[in-house]
Amino acid sequence: MLMVALIGAVALSGCSSKFKTYNGPEVTHVLVNKGARRMYLLHHNQVLKAYDIDLGFAPEGHKQFQGDGKTPEGRYVIDRRNPNSDFHLSIGLDYPNMRDRAYALAQGKTPGGDIFIHGRPNTKKKGNGPDWTAGCISVKDREIEDIYAMVKNGTPITITP
Rank of each mutant, 00 (worst) to 15 (best):
M1F: 10
L2S: 10
V4P: 07
L6H: 14
A9Y: 05
A9L: 10
V10D: 07
A11H: 14
G14A: 05
S16A: 10
S17R: 06
K18S: 04
K18E: 06
K20L: 14
P25Q: 13
E26Q: 15
E26H: 13
T28Y: 07
H29S: 07
L31R: 14
A36T: 08
M39E: 11
L41T: 01
L41F: 04
Y51V: 01
D52R: 15
D52G: 11
D52Q: 13
I53M: 02
I53N: 06
G56Y: 12
F57S: 05
E60Y: 11
H62I: 13
F65Y: 06
F65P: 06
P72C: 04
P72W: 03
E73A: 06
D79T: 13
R81E: 03
S85V: 02
D86K: 12
H88V: 12
L89V: 00
I91S: 01
D94W: 08
Y95R: 11
R101Q: 12
R101N: 09
A102F: 01
A104H: 09
G113Y: 03
G113H: 10
D114V: 09
D114A: 15
I115N: 09
I117S: 01
G119T: 00
N122T: 12
K124V: 05
N128T: 14
G129K: 07
P130G: 10
D131I: 05
G135I: 02
C136Y: 12
S138K: 12
V139C: 07
K140S: 04
D141I: 00
E143A: 07
I144N: 02
I147G: 01
Y148S: 01
M150R: 08
V151T: 04
N153I: 06
I159P: 15
T160G: 10
T160I: 14
